[in-house]
């Protein structure tokens, strides 16, 4: 495991944030399976080191854009369980007052410009956010999260072109979890993914997305370089989604073997790996970690109960927020 910062609190916070994402998703999955949560949802479990490694290198003033598989980005950027579960259940106290749902959570207070449920749809927003920073002379950086499947969308190439031409402070973070919906990535993406960015003269990196310290260390360097006017950058993060494409994608053996899933979970789980590193380094004891896990579980249980009891938006809200003026 790569050597990162030496600040114990930072390490513990990274661990805590990864467990919060996993716990959030376990609870969301249960809500869906018990028919309490409607619609369509996509689990981030397995990819926690990507969102946390990156977002821990950002400040609240830095921006992110997210995807349909966006709960992890949202938690990692600082969102609270209560407002997130309320949003998932379509309640008034949700981040978007119940109008966005699982695939559209935005959290302006922490610089999360929102999940965009059109694959690749947020690439323009992220790059536009970076253009805004440059025009304003601000030093914030925007990270654009997207999956390997989104590399097939033309918008990526349009915006990388302009980002490179204009040296915009944006980092394209491609979460390569090996599958584009129900199809292996190698069947939908010809050639190398990083070479796509390199063709525009964008410095590109390929990294183990299950190693939170490695992800964090690289991102810190790139964020600093972006602030220094050296952007944009591209990172391909090798990772894995534990669930199917969406929660209802249960019978998936025809495109992905159980052995492969087992291997990633047993041997490359980002939380398990980081936990044993923390213990080995003497940063936390097993007991302290168990206590932390239990506290997070309790937070989640309480937030779910709160959200279940919370009120739905008033019917009068149906035509609110269509227009600003």
């Amino acid at each position: 495991m790569a050597k990162g910062k030496t600040n114990t609190e930072d390490y513990l916070r990274m661990y805590r944030q990864m467990v919060r994402i996993r716990t959030f998703e376990d609870n969301a999955n249960q809500l869906y399976l018990s028919a309490k949560m409607p619609g369509l949802t996509h689990m981030y479990s397995g990819e926690e080191a990507v969102a946390v490694g990156i977002c821990e290198a950002l400040t609240d003033n830095d921006r992110i854009t997210s995807t349909h598989r966006g709960h992890g980005h949202c938690v990692a950027k600082g969102a609270e369980f209560k407002e997130m579960f309320c949003e998932l259940l379509g309640k008034e106290e949700g981040y978007c007052r119940g109008k966005g749902g699982s695939m559209h959570i935005a959290d302006q207070s922490h610089g999360n410009l929102g999940a965009n449920a059109i694959v690749g749809g947020s690439m323009g927003i992220a790059t536009g956010s970076a253009l805004r920073a440059k025009l304003q002379g601000a030093d914030d950086v925007t990270v654009c999260f997207f999956g390997d499947g989104a590399t097939a969308q033309g918008l990526l190439y349009e915006v990388m072109n302009m980002a490179a031409l204009w040296n915009l402070p944006v980092i394209y973070a491609c979460e390569n979890n090996g599958y584009s919906e129900y199809t292996k990535t190698e069947e939908i993406a010809a050639g190398s993914i990083t070479a796509r960015a390199e063709a525009f003269g964008i410095e590109a990196f390929r990294i183990d997305g299950q190693d939170v310290l490695a992800v964090n260390e690289l991102t810190q360097k790139l964020v600093a370089r972006c602030r220094n006017g050296e952007g944009p950058f591209f990172i391909e993060l090798e990772t894995y989604r534990y669930h199917g494409h969406h929660v209802g994608d249960i019978n998936r053996e025809y495109y992905r073997s159980k052995e492969e899933e087992k291997d990633w979970k047993q041997n490359r789980d980002p939380i398990v790996r980081f936990r044993s590193w923390l213990v080995d380094q003497g940063i936390a004891s097993e007991e302290e970690i168990e206590a932390m896990n239990a506290e997070i579980e309790k937070d989640a249980t309480e937030a779910v109960a709160y959200a279940e009891a919370a009120k739905y938006p008033d019917a009068a809200e149906v035509d609110m927020h269509v227009y600003a003026d």
């Binding site: 854009t65 690439m123 927003i125 536009g128 072109n161 302009m162």
Partner: peptide, 26 residues
């Protein structure tokens, strides 16, 4: 040139950029 910006021929791209820039207050 900072306030009158020539773009490439890339409608999907610059429409996205403008939308993102607008969300940030421009």
């Amino acid at each position: 040139p900072k306030r009158v910006v020539d773009t490439p021929i890339t409608e999907h791209g610059f429409t996205g950029l403008a939308t993102g820039a607008a969300m940030g207050g421009l």
